[in-house]
C-alpha cells in the first residue's frame, strides 16, 4: 500500500502546479542558455515528473516523463494480486469455516403461520437484481484484469482469452451504467430505512441472533443489513466515481491522478467483492428463507415477526384491517 500512498502524495504535489520549472528572475538577456540548460537528473529530483509544452492540443502529451508509471506498475503487478487474493480467498475461507461450524440458519417450519407478508415490492426487487446482476459481471470482469492472464489465459490460450477480455471490457464499461443506476435507486428506496438507530446497537450487542438463541428486535432492516446497505452505497459510489474517471481518461485528472484513481478503484473493488460474497452467502446458503424476500418478495409472517418485529408492528399499525397482510392487495413497504 505504501506505493499507493506515494502515488497519492506525488499526485498532490504535482497537482499543486509545481511541475513547470522555476521562473527565472529578471531578463534572460545576457545569459548563456547553453550552460544553463536544464538537466534531467536535477529536474527529476525537484519535480518527480517532467512537464513541458507541446503544440498539439493533447495535454497529456506535454508530460515528457513520469517515472511514477513504474510505481503504479509495482502496485498493479506486485501488490494488487495479493490484496485481491487475500481479501477474496480469505472471505471465502471464513464463510466456509462459518458454514461448517455454525451451519445454515434454519427456519422453524412448525412456527410457520402460513400467512405471507410482502417484504419487497417489484420495483425494489428489480433494483436489487439490476444492481446484483451487473455487479456480478463487473466483479468477474474486473477480477479478470488482475487474474485473467494468470489463471484463464494458460487454460484457454491467448486468442480466446483476448476475445473474452475484449468482451469483458465492453461488459465492464457498459454494465457500469445499470449498476450505477441501481445504486441510485437503492438510495431512493432504502435510504430511510437504513439510517442507524438505537435498536441497531442492541441488535449488534446481541450478535444479531447468530450468537444466542434469542432474536433481537429489528426494524425493516436489522443492523447487519444496514451495514451491507452502507457498504454497497459507499462502495458503489466510490466505484462509480473512480470508474467514470477511468472511462474518460485524462479528462478530469492527469496521468498520476488516473494511476491513483485506478489503485483506489481496484482496492475498493476487491474489498467490495469480498463483502458482497458474505452478503450472497447469508442471503442464500447461510439462512433459510432469506432468499424469498428478494425472490418472491413475500415472506412468512412468523419469520418476519421473529426477524423484523418492529417492522411488522409498524406495518400492522398502518393497516386498518388488521392482520390481512397476506392479501392479494400488495402493501407498500412504507
Amino acid at each position: 500500500m505504501s506505493h499507493t500512498i506515494r502515488i497519492a502524495l506525488a499526485a498532490l504535489v504535482l497537482s499543486a502546479g509545481a511541475v513547470l520549472a522555476q521562473p527565472q528572475p529578471g531578463s534572460p538577456s545576457g545569459q548563456n542558455p547553453t550552460t544553463r540548460a536544464v538537466n534531467e537528473e536535477q529536474l527529476l529530483r525537484e519535480f518527480e515528473r517532467l512537464d513541458g509544452r507541446v503544440t498539439i492540443p493533447d495535454s497529456k502529451a506535454a508530460t515528457l516523463e513520469q517515472p511514477q508509471g513504474r510505481e503504479w506498475r509495482t502496485f498493479r503487478e506486485g501488490w494488487l494480486p495479493w490484496i485481491a487474493g487475500i481479501a477474496i480467498l480469505g472471505m471465502l475461507l471464513a464463510l466456509v469455516i462459518f458454514y461448517f461450524t455454525k451451519g445454515r440458519v434454519r427456519l422453524d417450519h412448525s412456527e410457520e403461520s402460513g400467512t405471507k407478508i410482502l417484504r419487497f415490492n417489484t420495483f425494489e426487487r428489480f433494483t436489487h437484481w439490476l444492481t446484483a446482476s451487473s455487479f456480478i459481471v463487473l466483479g468477474l470482469t474486473g477480477l479478470n484484469y488482475i487474474f485473467g492472464k494468470r489463471i484463464l489465459m494458460p487454460l484457454i490460450g491467448p486468442d480466446a482469452f483476448s476475445a473474452l477480455s475484449q468482451w469483458g471490457k465492453y461488459a465492464h464499461n457498459y454494465l457500469a451504467w445499470p449498476f450505477m443506476l441501481g445504486i441510485l435507486f437503492m438510495m431512493v428506496v432504502w435510504l430511510r430505512d437504513n439510517i442507524p438507530n438505537r435498536v441497531d446497537a442492541a441488535w449488534l450487542k446481541a450478535g444479531g441472533g447468530f450468537l444466542g438463541d434469542a432474536h433481537p428486535s429489528a426494524g425493516r432492516f436489522n443492523a447487519g443489513q444496514k451495514i451491507v446497505f452502507w457498504i454497497v452505497m459507499l462502495g458503489g459510489i466510490a466505484m462509480s466515481v473512480t470508474g467514470i474517471i477511468l472511462m474518460f481518461p485524462i479528462s478530469a485528472v492527469d496521468v498520476n491522478g488516473i494511476q491513483l484513481n485506478q489503485a483506489i478503484h481496484a482496492i475498493i473493488g476487491v474489498l467490495f467483492v469480498a463483502a458482497i460474497l458474505a452478503h450472497i452467502y447469508i442471503g442464500s446458503l447461510g439462512m433459510e428463507g432469506a432468499y424469498d424476500a428478494m425472490g418472491s418478495g413475500e415472506v412468512d409472517l412468523a419469520w418476519a415477526r421473529r426477524h423484523h418485529d418492529l417492522w411488522v408492528e409498524e406495518q400492522q399499525a398502518k393497516t386498518a384491517s388488521g392482520p390481512q397482510l397476506g392479501g392479494s392487495r400488495p402493501i407498500p413497504a412504507e
Binding site: 545576457g30 545569459q31 548563456n32 542558455p33
Partner: peptide
C-alpha cells in the same frame, strides 16, 4: 524574442 535558436546560444541579447 527568446527563440528556439536562442535556446542554443552561448549568449542571448534581447534588444
Amino acid at each position: 524574442r527568446f527563440t528556439r535558436t536562442a535556446a542554443h546560444a552561448t549568449e542571448y541579447v534581447r534588444f
